[in-house]
């Protein structure tokens, strides 16, 4: 009986560790391919802080994992909750921008249509579209569906 239990426990630990390993490395690889961290370093000229940024990503992933499985709650003021939401948005925005760039959408569009100077306006179209779409969804659309 004891050995059977020990084996299932060992299996669970093994499977958990294995899946965590794969998901974790995949997550980091995804972030690396999109080049968000290099972009932020370039903007802030903080090349030396790269190790701390790496640590921050790992700590964040672990924190998220903890949040996923815990039931503990804390009482944060709404302003801090909003700040949390803002950070979330900036991150997803950078993710979306990086994805668009990887797909090479803009250069092709601009070349095909011969519009070089209107680049900024096209960018703004996407930015505004994202904000409006997101607000519409949270304020109205979630009620309808």
């Amino acid at each position: 009986m004891m050995t059977a239990e020990a084996i299932t426990v060992f299996l669970q630990v093994f499977i958990g560790l294995g899946s965590g390993l794969v998901v974790g490395s995949g997550f980091v690889a995804f972030l690396t391919v999109l080049g968000i961290i290099p972009r932020l370093i370039q903007l802030s000229k903080s090349y030396r802080s790269l190790p701390s940024y790496q640590f921050s990503v790992i700590a964040g992933a672990l924190l998220g994992t903890y949040f996923t499985f815990t039931d503990v709650t804390i009482q944060l003021p709404l302003i801090l909750v909003s700040f949390w939401g803002l950070l979330h948005g900036v991150f997803i925005g950078m993710l979306a921008a990086a994805l668009t760039e990887v797909l090479n959408v803009f250069p092709i569009l601009l070349k095909r249509l011969g519009i070089d100077k209107e680049l900024l306006w096209l960018l703004m179209a996407i930015v505004i579209g994202k904000i409006v779409g997101s607000l519409f969804q949270w304020l109205i659309f979630v009620e309808i569906i």
């Binding site: 972009r39 803002l86 979330h88 991150f91 925005g93 921008a97 760039e101 960018l123 505004i128 607000l135």
Partner: peptide, 18 residues
């Protein structure tokens, strides 16, 4: 309280990236 700042941040993040 979470979602509206999130939506604004979405646009900010894209501008930051580009």
């Amino acid at each position: 309280w979470l979602q509206i700042p999130y939506s604004i941040g979405l646009g900010l993040g894209m501008i930051l990236f580009f």
